[in-house]
Nucleic acid binder design. Sequence first.
RNA 1: UGCCGCAUAGCUCAGCGGUAGAGCAGCUGACUGUUAAUCAGCGGGUCCUAGGUUCGAAUCCUAGUGCGGCAGCCA
Length: 463
Amino acid sequence: MHYVKQYIKNVLQQEPGDTVTVKGWVKTKRASKGIQFIQLSDGSCFTDLQIVIDASKFEENLLKEISTGCSLLVEGTLVESPAAGQKVELSATDIEIVGSAPVEDYPLQKKGATFEFLREIAHLRCRTNTFGAVNRIRSKASWAIHQFFNERGFHYVNTPIITASDCEGAGEMFYVSNSLAVENGEYKLKNKNPQEDFFAKPAYLTVSGQLEGETLACGLTNVYTFGPTFRAENSNSARHLAEFWMIEPEMAFCNLEGDMALATEFIQYVIKYALDNCSDDIEFFNKRIEPGILETLEHVVNSDFEHVSYTDAIKYLENSGEKFEYPIHWGADLQSEHERWLTEKKIGKPVIVYNYPKEIKAFYMRLNDDNKTVAAMDVLVPKIGEIIGGSQREERHNVLVQRIKEQNLEEEAYWWYLDLRKFGTVPHAGFGLGLERLIMYITGMKNIRDVIPYYRCPRNADF
RNA sequence: UGCCGCAUAGCUCAGCGGUAGAGCAGCUGACUGUUAAUCAGCGGGUCCUAGGUUCGAAUCCUAGUGCGGCAGCCA
């Protein structure tokens, strides 16, 4: 048995009269006395193939066993459909049940299920319309991301997933150790001293490949990473995961302006690719998940993102007349409610806020000439908030050392990072984009746990 | 982690102190073209767990567990 080459996606484009064989899973079956209809899906596209069965030509027991969820191999002739709903359908000449799905146990019904319930059966949810569409868009978007960077001469680099430098400061980290064992249902440490552990020092799952990415950009010029990222924060929100996929481009000889330009171009490119290549799926999201999403996406592709300095953003917020739960003033971090007001009410499209106070941003962000702000930028989008966080990096050795000291970090731990500023230093910039947040934006899905096949968050590592 | 809400049939929910309910799914049957097919009939319950109040608790109270929403942390 070879891998499938004739997908339903292609069959739907073929001409009536063609003989085809399709393989897939039954979504629903509708039976009358002499005729039965099956909606068959192989996940290749949003549309199911309608199989038409003349009941008199098949064993009664065979037809009886066909139920929602079972896998079939169907041979037949493609015919023009006499009824509304589909152009062509498959008139079956031979049906093989590859795997049955006992109807009393199969948890998926033809009627809609809640996303909460589907999370409990995450191993089956990709068979539904919504999760089929999410997975196809996720795949196409990932492909578009690689293509975007490849077309622009960026090198795809892989930064370590296990890291011994707790330099990033981007969040709580998961320890990686082989000293930990479970005995009688309890954790036990085999070695208490980190020096005797596997890496001979504390090691963690990466929270960002940025610092390593910078080293690679300072030699390869333009690079990007695209890989799993881990945060051990106890965050219980619809926008956070403990394991997510992050894209992090890093560009040598580039400043914040170039960084913002790339971020804009990047988001528009991926969305346009999805619009061009997943139109059926996006139409579904537009109809059933987030009415208006199609128009929003088209608008995003065709209009520039608004650029607003942090200082201006504060002015807008102060003069907004809105009552915010968190009072806003220059120097305060923008809270969700502020970001949402800016991008949803004030601007009404993606907005890039830049030049934040240095006190609320990371040490590696380049200090501006005003000595008060750093060259950081966040891309905020309606309904989701921050989708990209980026900055121009501090390339001046003395300033970087000063910033490390200001934030009470250990200078020695950054020896290799500081080396970059000693040997052939160069202005450079980059950003991080959460793939899942981008998928949420494209699909209109409201919970990040529903845009990744198997989500990881506090109290959940099932499957 | 904080605040709020929810937990009843396979699923979605109603019932809110007095014998456990509906729709869908399932089962049986009817129907030659359905589109979440339709129509008739049938079966289906540890009302999350542990305490408490009460003559009596799915219902009220306490604790726990799980889930969700919002906030925080960020991507």
